[in-house]
């Protein structure tokens, strides 16, 4: 059900997009804004599949906002899996949003999607901009830097890659006492 609070408008679309993106990328809104790419990605999605489909995703996501925090995470994940990533219509777009943030690339949607929900004439694989390649989250996620940009300085290669910790990451799940705060204040 679309309530008034849940309504996506031109005024709150960026904020809602960032909230959804933070949930599905495991990066914080601060980090996402820090890439400087939020507006460009929003525009890309609108240009290729139209703002209405994005708003549908954000609306579905918004309904689940009542379960917040780490305790709410499993429930939210299940909900997102079922309602968004499991949806034939919304799933491929949601996956593309994750890929946009991680790689700066819009990937052509599956043929099955285009046949059912297309046509989308601009739906081809393309790099959003030179900056979006550089700002891809994948570099941070693997503790590396984009080739040809953000050089980390002479001799830095002697240090092991620094893999950031993510909330809910099984490799870093707290054993008993939660001493180490998770990377994401969810």
């Amino acid at each position: 059900m679309i309530t008034e609070q849940n309504l996506v408008t031109d005024e709150n679309r960026l904020e809602r997009f960032l909230a959804f993106s933070a949930e599905v990328t495991a990066f914080t809104v601060f980090e996402l804004q820090g890439t400087g790419q939020a507006e460009a990605y929003l525009k890309t999605i609108g240009d290729v599949v139209g703002a209405a489909l994005l708003d549908e995703i954000l609306t579905v996501h918004g309904k689940q906002m009542s379960t917040t925090g780490d305790e709410g995470r499993p429930a939210r994940n299940a909900y997102l899996r079922r309602e968004i990533f499991g949806s034939e219509k919304l799933g491929p777009i949601a996956r593309n949003i994750v890929k946009l943030w991680y790689s700066g690339v819009w990937y052509e949607l599956p043929t099955a999607w285009t046949e059912n929900y297309g046509p989308a004439p601009k739906d081809v694989t393309f790099v959003v901009s030179p900056a979006s390649y550089v700002e891809g989250l994948l570099w941070t996620a693997i503790g590396a830097h984009p080739a040809g940009a953000k050089a980390p300085g002479y001799g830095s290669w002697a240090a092991a890659p620094r893999i950031p910790r993510f909330a809910g990451d099984p490799a870093h799940l707290p054993a008993a006492a939660d001493e180490e705060p998770a990377r994401l204040p969810a």
Partner: peptide
């Protein structure tokens, strides 16, 4: 300084993040 130099490059990323946040 060998260790300080990579840290300076790290500043570039940290500063950029702050500057791009409203």
């Amino acid at each position: 300084l060998f260790g300080a130099v990579p840290r300076m490059f790290e500043f570039r990323n940290l500063m950029t993040e702050l500057i791009r946040n409203p």
